[in-house]
Design a binder for these strands. Structure first.
Length: 304
RNA sequence: CGCGGGAUAGAGCAGCCCGGUAGCUCGUCAGGCUCAUAACCUGAAGGUCGUUGGUUCAAAUCCUUCUCCCGCAA
């Protein structure tokens, strides 16, 4: 099958690699290289790099709304477009430009968690299951008919990173299956009454608010690991928290109950023992390692 | 050239501002104590202080080259 691929971040690369292996990827669309990272170097997207490595033409339009961009699709003779975390809105004209339409890989079991950050929101909310949905793109966000779904459990060990990687692989498999059987699958509509939205992660969410319960904060820490990661501030320094567990202790919210042999911080309900931490300028390490040479003063407060 | 922090024993840190014998906590090893232990006591090994050059009687410390790591920001 001749396919146009559209995607941007790491989540999209397993899907693209699978398509390259199994189909004829005629063109790849991704976001333009942008100044990012230390030194503001111009960085190509992960999808961009994979495409280049495989000698596939890459296009990086800033919008697909103009007619020039849309006419390109007509001349490619592609049967379908596969979209994975592309980051641009597809206008109706693009959606209709392909025989099989535009197929999207979404990292949740739709209609739950439509939107930008389904992986993190599922963990944060305490869902016991996550998964991948392959659906048809329609003008309404993540609301198209579904071809296939595959679930996977969320455990106490699941982090945003681990779930992301697992779902990306599942997504690649599932998309492969759907494309193979596209003639035989009748897509089913989503139940609009069950739809929820996963709003994108905001900067101010990264700061841990110890006025929340320990159980919630623990989930959030896992959801935000490794990116964008949560943190607290203590005596002018910022400490990223990568892993923690809930412990049965009480104190005023944000109070350091133990700072020498372990780091335990009181929350509104319960307390958190920080297990993996990253001091600014340093790499992430087990809290026990940091505490060999560093000490948090007991009974001082962190956070706000 | 977006802003900033860091590199010191196997690990984590202090020392640097104000140059003058290389420190702390832990780990390792040996011995001791104990019914016993991740506990306790005694002792030991382990460092060209990331790299280059300079200043100086003297550099972990001040200036400089490069490499690597990280935070912010996007």
């Amino acid at each position: 099958m001749n396919i146009v691929f559209m995607g941007t971040p790491d989540f999209a690369t397993p899907v693209l690699e699978r398509l390259i292996a199994e189909h004829n990827v005629v063109s790849v669309y991704t976001k333009a290289p942008s100044q990012s990272g230390r030194g503001f170097e111009l960085k190509k997207t992960p999808v961009h790099l994979i495409a280049e490595k495989n000698g596939i033409p890459v296009k990086t339009p800033t919008t697909l709304k103009d007619e020039v961009a849309q006419k390109e699709f007509a001349t490619m003779g592609a049967d379908a477009a596969v979209v994975a975390a592309y980051g641009l809105i597809l206008p109706q004209a693009v959606i209709e430009a392909f025989k099989f339409g535009c197929l999207n890989v979404h990292a949740s079991l739709l209609p739950r968690w439509r939107g930008a950050a389904p992986i993190q929101r599922a963990i944060e909310a305490g869902d016991e299951t996550s998964g991948v949905t392959i659906m048809q793109i329609v003008s309404k966000l993540d609301a198209g008919k579904m071809y296939a779904k595959k679930a996977m459990p969320i455990t106490n060990e699941t982090t945003g990173g681990s779930l992301h990687d697992a779902l990306a692989k599942i997504g690649a498999d599932l998309m492969s299956d759907v494309l193979k059987n596209i003639h035989d699958i009748e897509p089913v509509a989503q139940d609009e009454n069950l739809a929820t939205y996963a709003k994108k992660l905001e900067k101010d969410e990264e700061k841990l608010d110890f006025n929340m319960s320990a159980a919630y904060l623990e989930r959030k820490i896992r959801a935000f690991n490794p990116y964008p990661a949560t943190y607290f501030e203590h005596q002018g320094e910022r400490f990223k928290v990568l892993r923690a567990k809930v412990v049965e202790k009480t104190g005023k919210a944000g109070e350091i109950l133990e700072g020498k042999n372990a780091l335990i911080i009181a929350c509104k309900e319960g307390a958190l023992e920080v297990l993996e931490i990253q001091r600014q300028g340093k790499r992430a390490m087990a809290t026990s390692e940091l505490l060999r040479g560093f000490c948090f003063e007991q009974n001082t407060f962190v956070g706000a």
